[in-house]
Amino acid sequence: MEDINHNVSLTSGELANLWTQYMNDSLTICVLNHSIKKVQDEDIKEILQFALSLAEPHIVKIKEFLKQENYPVPKGFTIEQDINLNAPPLFSDTFMLVYMHIMTLHGMTGYAGAVGNSVRADQITYFIECNKEAMELYERTVHLMLKKGIYSRTPHINSPEKIDFVDNKSYLSGWFGKKRPLNAMEISGLSFNMQKTAVKVVLEIGFGQTCQSKELQKYFNKGRDICKKHFETFRSFLIKDNLSSPNLWISEVSNSTVPPFSDKLMLFHIVTLVSAAVGFYSAGLSVSQRRDLALEYTGLVTEIGLYAEDGAQLLIKNGWLERPPMADDKDELSNSQ
């Protein structure tokens, strides 16, 4: 791409991309450093090491971008303050592979959005490269999960004999009477959200039994129950059509009560994931053409959104929520004169 930056400053969108990636990758580096030390399976360890080799240079590059703009580098998360390398493993090797797979899905989604939100040539080039890295990591995680027989495929459906068109308004129904079977887009959305929700449940169980704060423990346990309910809600739609559903993985949490991560890291991680779930649920809603499914998504979006807000309030209460890049408050500036 031709370099036509002309020393143009980063836009608010580009700052948001870099700030968000710094926060997420600094957290990921902490999680991976602990996991790599504890994982026994060499194949899974290799995946985690590869993921770490991608995340660490990102931090260096983002610091360079921000310093060039005279923009403060976020504090984020650090190995010194946010992990206990001596803590026993909290999750099984199997779950860490599943976790890495889901986090890679989040990464690809974020990087694709960052490319579309960037204008400066260096930013576009950087996030395209990040997306390529994430796609390679995705391919590796899927290959290893298939090899180990733990990948949850989206349910198979039979091919129709011919192309068909909807000729009855009952196709959109779902509240009363006979419901039509789910279509492929609806099935995909349900399965996709179930896979992500399953990971949140396991994290909330593990974080709930190791966090130091009773208030956070209550929050994680509440999230565990909410996400379990959401998982079962999604699953009920698939079961009614005799379709398979993803695993929940709740048996992959150890009995350790020694915290491997700081309360700050654990809370931020959950708040970030449930906030992202609002978007993923909404994407599922957007392709749902059965009214009962659309209505269910609407209720779940509201519930998970309120839970995310409660988590953000806890971050603020504990002084852990870093202020993201913001516009100037012109009213406040004028009143200060």
Results as ranks from 00 to 15, higher is better:
residue 324 P to I: 01
residue 272 T to D: 08
residue 68 Q to G: 13
residue 233 T to E: 00
residue 39 V to G: 01
residue 257 T to V: 04
residue 187 I to G: 01
residue 296 E to I: 00
residue 37 K to I: 14
residue 78 T to R: 01
residue 64 E to H: 15
residue 204 E to F: 02
residue 312 A to V: 08
residue 187 I to S: 01
residue 236 S to Q: 13
residue 214 K to I: 07
residue 103 M to L: 15
residue 221 N to Y: 15
residue 164 D to S: 15
residue 121 A to G: 07
residue 265 L to E: 06
residue 29 I to W: 03
residue 307 Y to S: 11
residue 269 H to F: 05
residue 99 Y to K: 14
residue 304 I to L: 15
residue 253 V to M: 06
residue 72 P to S: 07
residue 117 N to K: 13
residue 17 N to Y: 13
residue 174 G to C: 02
residue 245 S to L: 11
residue 160 P to Y: 03
residue 145 M to E: 13
residue 331 D to Q: 09
residue 126 Y to I: 11
residue 240 K to P: 11
residue 239 I to W: 00
residue 232 E to G: 00
residue 9 S to E: 14
residue 168 N to A: 03
residue 225 D to P: 02
residue 5 N to W: 14
residue 214 K to E: 07
residue 203 L to H: 03
residue 204 E to W: 04
residue 295 L to A: 09
residue 30 C to R: 01
residue 287 V to K: 13
residue 306 L to I: 06
residue 256 S to W: 10
residue 272 T to C: 05
residue 153 R to I: 01
residue 278 V to I: 15
residue 212 Q to E: 08
residue 305 G to Y: 08
residue 84 N to T: 07
residue 327 A to I: 02
residue 84 N to S: 09
residue 332 E to M: 06
residue 19 W to G: 08
residue 263 D to F: 06
residue 69 E to R: 12
residue 217 Q to K: 04
residue 270 I to Y: 00
residue 75 K to E: 15
residue 192 F to Y: 10
residue 206 G to Y: 13
residue 219 Y to R: 06
residue 127 F to R: 06
residue 172 L to K: 12
residue 192 F to A: 13
residue 183 N to V: 11
residue 194 M to T: 15
residue 56 E to A: 15
residue 96 M to R: 03
residue 229 K to M: 01
residue 184 A to L: 15
residue 297 Y to I: 05
residue 274 V to K: 06
residue 251 S to Y: 00
residue 262 S to Q: 07
residue 155 P to T: 00
residue 299 G to L: 01
residue 198 A to Q: 07
residue 56 E to P: 14
residue 179 K to H: 13
residue 190 L to W: 05
residue 3 D to L: 05
residue 301 V to E: 01
residue 58 H to G: 04
residue 115 V to M: 10
residue 214 K to L: 08
residue 113 G to S: 12
residue 282 S to H: 07
residue 57 P to I: 08
residue 66 L to M: 07
residue 318 N to A: 07
residue 276 A to L: 04
residue 247 N to T: 15
residue 245 S to I: 07
residue 245 S to C: 14
residue 40 Q to I: 12
